Computed example of a mutant assay.
Amino acid sequence: MTADKATIIGLSLVIAMSSAAHADTLQNIIDKGEVAIGVKADFAPWGMRDTNGNVVGLEIDLANDLARKLSEQAGKEITARTVVVTTSNRMEFLEQGRIDVLLATMADTPERRRVVGILQPSYYSSGIAVLAKKDSGIDGWESLEGKSICGIQGSWFNKDYGLKNGAEMVVFAGNAEAEAALLAGRCAGWLYDDASFRARLQSNPEKWADYTIATPVVADAPWGAGVRKQDLAAPIAAAVSDAITEWHKSGTIVELEEKWGLGASDWVLQMQEKCLAENPICDSVRDDSE
């Protein structure tokens, strides 16, 4: 046997062993009595730290409810172990097996579907905009030309809506750093998710009194829960998809929006109607035409 052939066989065995290890992620979760769920800690109110340092928020509530639903399905207690991820490492954590499920403000894009398994139905939706001081001179996308704009590492829209509009992007590892830079005047505006901006403006109007969403909201994109690519047709994917459908039908997400000071969004209300009407967009079978 040649060295090259031995290497190929060895790599094939490693890949096969890796696939086998994740062959039934749901059963592994049941055996351990624990599901590891990736969540954000820098995207209030979906994921943030409270005064005691605990990670709380809308997606953490969903993570705990997912564990409850898995417990009912398994007939034994399954606890949720939340693992803090960032925009730049969340898919990597999933691929590496450090988490079983991803619930971390991840917009569903074709590029991301090539890396991880993004589930249908989506559970939330948001678009892209710029938050800026009212006197910043930013009053639309073309007005970003030549201005320093804060962004987050790993965000796909830094290029498509920042650089392509002539902005000088200043990127940070997380939201806390980008927010601090904006408030300190290091950036004329912050290019990010409009849902995050709405939450800030509504929850702390005094702090953000001088700021506004200064561009039209574009690229509205649903948020998807994620599993490993090889789990997309596995029982864990079906279980998470079923949970999301039930969250819509029961009004759970509407209730959590109210709990976390967001108010009911049109998209969530429309998804509730669609899921109650058994619209195909609410089933677990992905159809990109839906």
Rank of each mutant, 00 (worst) to 15 (best):
residue 2 T to H: 06
residue 9 I to Y: 05
residue 10 G to M: 02
residue 13 L to I: 06
residue 14 V to H: 01
residue 27 Q to L: 08
residue 32 K to Y: 02
residue 33 G to M: 04
residue 37 I to A: 07
residue 43 F to S: 07
residue 45 P to T: 03
residue 47 G to A: 00
residue 48 M to V: 06
residue 51 T to Q: 15
residue 53 G to L: 06
residue 60 I to R: 05
residue 61 D to C: 03
residue 65 D to H: 12
residue 66 L to D: 09
residue 68 R to H: 12
residue 71 S to G: 05
residue 71 S to Y: 02
residue 76 K to G: 02
residue 77 E to K: 15
residue 78 I to V: 11
residue 84 V to P: 15
residue 89 N to W: 01
residue 90 R to P: 14
residue 90 R to L: 09
residue 99 I to S: 08
residue 109 T to E: 11
residue 110 P to G: 08
residue 111 E to H: 10
residue 114 R to C: 10
residue 116 V to C: 12
residue 117 G to K: 14
residue 117 G to D: 07
residue 118 I to S: 04
residue 122 S to Y: 03
residue 124 Y to D: 14
residue 128 I to N: 04
residue 129 A to E: 03
residue 130 V to N: 09
residue 134 K to V: 01
residue 136 S to L: 03
residue 141 W to I: 14
residue 149 I to G: 09
residue 150 C to R: 03
residue 152 I to G: 07
residue 156 W to H: 09
residue 157 F to K: 00
residue 161 Y to A: 04
residue 162 G to I: 13
residue 164 K to D: 13
residue 168 E to I: 14
residue 181 A to Y: 01
residue 187 C to I: 04
residue 188 A to I: 00
residue 189 G to W: 03
residue 194 D to A: 12
residue 195 A to E: 04
residue 201 L to D: 00
residue 207 K to V: 02
residue 207 K to Y: 00
residue 208 W to R: 07
residue 213 I to N: 11
residue 216 P to H: 10
residue 218 V to S: 11
residue 224 G to C: 13
residue 235 P to V: 08
residue 242 D to R: 09
residue 243 A to K: 02
residue 243 A to Q: 03
residue 246 E to L: 10
residue 251 G to V: 10
residue 260 W to P: 01
residue 260 W to H: 07
residue 264 A to Q: 13
residue 266 D to Q: 07
residue 269 L to R: 15
residue 271 M to G: 12
residue 273 E to V: 08
residue 279 N to P: 01
residue 279 N to S: 09
residue 288 D to Q: 12
residue 288 D to L: 15
residue 289 S to Y: 03
residue 290 E to D: 13
residue 290 E to S: 11
